[in-house]
């Protein structure tokens, strides 16, 4: 715990306090938006953008470096991860002898999400890519410009 705070840091106390609560809430919300996308408005794009905004807000309150330290890895790693998930979800039906990207679902529905299928995993892939792209762009710019 730091005892001496600079003027700038003091100015941001309110924002920081707010962010500490907002970040998890927004992230949760983004996941919620992502998962319900198939039935109500929402989806991977919007969800990813909301999650990104949450992290950007955090970086405003603290600093880019501290936001990056929330990750165990570089946000850039989310990009290949998301792309891989999307492509794998498309390849899954190929293993079942169906054409690439055919929708396949589990028999039972899950609460809130509805029926779980390849489309959902595809959307999660999009979600990860969007977070990765936005954070890579913004944090690279913030650090280097």
């Amino acid at each position: 715990m730091k005892r001496y705070r600079s003027k700038k840091e003091q100015d941001q106390t309110i924002l920081r306090t707010a962010t500490n609560y907002l970040l998890p809430v927004l992230l949760l919300f983004s996941v919620f938006v992502l998962l319900r996308g198939h039935y109500l408005s929402g989806g991977g794009f919007v969800g990813g953008l909301i999650a990104s905004i949450a992290f950007v807000l955090h970086s405003f309150a603290y600093s880019t470096k501290q936001t990056l330290s929330l990750f165990q890895f570089s946000p850039m790693a989310l990009i290949p991860a998301g792309l891989a998930l999307s492509i794998l979800s498309g390849l899954l039906p190929v293993l079942l002898g169906l054409p690439f990207m055919t929708g396949v679902w589990f028999a039972d529905s899950v609460a809130v999400i509805g029926s779980v299928g390849t489309a959902l995993f595809f959307d999660i892939g999009v979600y990860l890519v969007v977070i990765g792209v936005v954070l890579t762009i913004l944090f690279t710019i913030a650090e280097n410009v």
Partner: peptide, 13 residues
């Protein structure tokens, strides 16, 4: 809309 963000970011840099 989403693509335009990527494009704007690249252009700005």
């Amino acid at each position: 809309i989403v693509i335009s963000f990527g494009l704007t970011a690249f252009a700005i840099v």
